[in-house]
Computed example of a mutant assay.
Amino acid sequence: MNTFGHLKFKKEDSFEEAIKKLESIVSLLDEGNLSLDETLSLYEEGIGLYRYCNDYLEKSEQKIQILMNGEEISFELSDAKIKGD
């Protein structure tokens, strides 16, 4: 994945950066112009980004629900993990 290193998730990436990287990966995969190795590497990275983003959204939704119910919050959104962390 040397050519696509800029699409690799980094711990300092914001949610928005992760979404942009995921969108770029989906676009590249949709084009179908990649080798099998490139496709597999990008697919794997995309799955990791999807899991990170999904986890972040679920934690955000939980936080909103807790705030709406007036309860105390005891977790950080930054606790969202991506495979390999």
Rank of each mutant, 00 (worst) to 15 (best):
C53P: 01
L36E: 13
N2M: 08
Q65V: 12
L42D: 00
R51V: 08
K20V: 08
A80H: 00
E38T: 07
I47S: 01
E44G: 10
D30K: 15
R51C: 07
D55G: 08
K21E: 00
L7Y: 01
F9V: 00
Q62E: 15
K11Q: 12
I64L: 15
V26D: 02
E45F: 07
D13H: 09
S24G: 07
K81W: 04
R51T: 10
L7S: 03
D79H: 07
A80P: 02
E12Q: 11
D30A: 10
S41Q: 12
E44M: 10
E23F: 09
R51W: 03
L49W: 00
Y56L: 04
F4E: 05
G5T: 12
Y52H: 03
E58Q: 13
E17Y: 06
E45R: 13
V26G: 01
E58A: 13
F4M: 01
S78G: 08
L42G: 04
I47T: 02
D30I: 02
G48K: 04
M68F: 09
E16F: 10
F15K: 02
S35G: 11
K59E: 06
N54W: 05
V26E: 07
D37K: 10
D13C: 08
M1D: 06
S74Q: 11
E16T: 10
Y56C: 01
N69T: 10
E58C: 06
Q62P: 02
L7P: 00
F15E: 02
F15M: 01
M1E: 03
K59P: 03
S60L: 13
G70I: 07
L57M: 13
L36S: 11
I73R: 07
E38I: 08
Y50E: 06
Y56E: 03
A80G: 06
E61A: 15
I25F: 04
N54F: 06
D55W: 03
Y50H: 14
V26N: 09
S35C: 09
K63V: 05
I47Q: 05
N33W: 09
S60I: 08
M1S: 14
E38F: 06
